[in-house]
Design a protein around this nucleic acid. Structure first.
Lengths: 199, 199
DNA sequence: CCATAAATGTAGTGAGCGCTACAAATGTGG
DNA sequence: CCACATTTGTAGCGCTCACTACATTTATGG
């Protein structure tokens, strides 16, 4: 049997372009016209490949979180909980103000609240944020077992705290905070960790 | 000369209803149909009173920030910087999970990124958030002058930090974090302040 | 070289959007 | 009680939205 005409565009490259549009305008603010233009394809190609606007978002998020998990590996491999926190927050300050991307974090910018019919989108983004939080929590459970965090420290609370600061930095970056400002936030935030660390 | 037919609805009560819709669905996710239904008026009344959807948002934000400034007075009157931080963050944990309102903060939920033509909305929200940050900064400048904060403390950085945590808690609340979880975040956050305080 | 299968580009579709024209209703000033 | 100014409800405007029908093109299997 025949295999059909092959796809003429690179799906991953197209997803990177779509990611940028969602990042800059949010899910609801991004239009199919903007997406197809950025991806250099026509609507039927988009729908054949990704099914729907929401399907395209999920595919873009998969790609985003894949990169992010890779980035997180470098963070989580830090020797102590305090250094995990520092690398994470300083790294966030830098990536969220990287001129190569829109400011802020796609998982926050994408949409915290959506209109009727798109209620799934905020859930989807929240689930991806939760993944990072869980990675941090697991790392801090280990840090506690290793005696790196005090006996009184709560790994889940610390992970939630880092996740909150991370999201907050995303909000500030999206409204124009520069790298220096975010690094100051990171520096103050890390102090909360020193209280929880052994020496 | 004649004065014209009087308005048949209470503008402030209508704004409270509009506020809730924007809060729950974001600026772009909220439709005129939803807004008018919640406000119990018809579109012409909305446009006569507020000019446009964006005008309605601004009017709702004015009302929101008026309440917020009132709330902030109670926060800023705390005797020390550390207590300002604690009251603020714990208060945020409570108000952002108050079942009387949609979860999170309108100034964050409203829209961080918008479509072409609504670029003003994120700016508007950011400006209101910045107002709170400035109030905090001024308060910490005073705290430093009073010797309540260490000589090495940076009031602007501390205000920015609180603002970031606040926004971050809004993000988490909007994705379902409960009061207990946010209070834990507040508790950890406050520790960063103890490092900056004199005894 | 032909039959088949899938992707492409053109050109729309119905639905829902923000917003408004218009006539009727309702108050005030003289 | 009348002339006027403004609001109200009905109905619908033009536009843009996410999405798709369809004919064409481009590959593969036999």
């Amino acid at each position: 049997m025949a295999m059909g005409r092959p796809r003429a565009f690179d799906a991953d490259a197209a997803l990177d372009q779509a990611m940028e549009v969602f990042w800059r305008h949010g899910y609801e603010g991004a239009t199919i016209a903007q997406l197809t233009e950025a991806m250099s394809i026509n609507p039927p190609s988009l729908y054949a490949a990704f099914g729907s606007k929401e399907g395209l978002l999920k595919a873009a998020l998969d790609r985003y979180t894949a990169k992010r998990n890779c980035w997180m590996e470098g963070i989580l491999s830090a020797p102590t909980a305090r250094e995990v926190a520092e690398r994470m927050l300083v790294g966030t300050a830098d990536t969220q103000t990287d001129p190569a991307n829109p400011p802020g974090c796609l998982l926050v910018q994408g949409g915290l609240a959506c209109g009727t019919g798109s209620e799934n989108v905020p859930f989807e983004l929240a689930a991806r944020r939760a993944e990072t939080e869980n990675q941090l929590r697991d790392r801090f459970v280990r840090a506690k077992a290793e005696g790196d965090l005090k006996e009184s420290a709560d790994p889940a609370a610390l992970a939630r705290y880092l996740s909150a600061v991370n999201a907050g930095m995303g909000v500030m970056a999206s409204s124009g905070a520069d790298r220096e400002a975010l690094r100051q936030v990171a520096a103050v935030s890390v102090k909360a960790f020193e209280e929880q660390s052994n020496s």
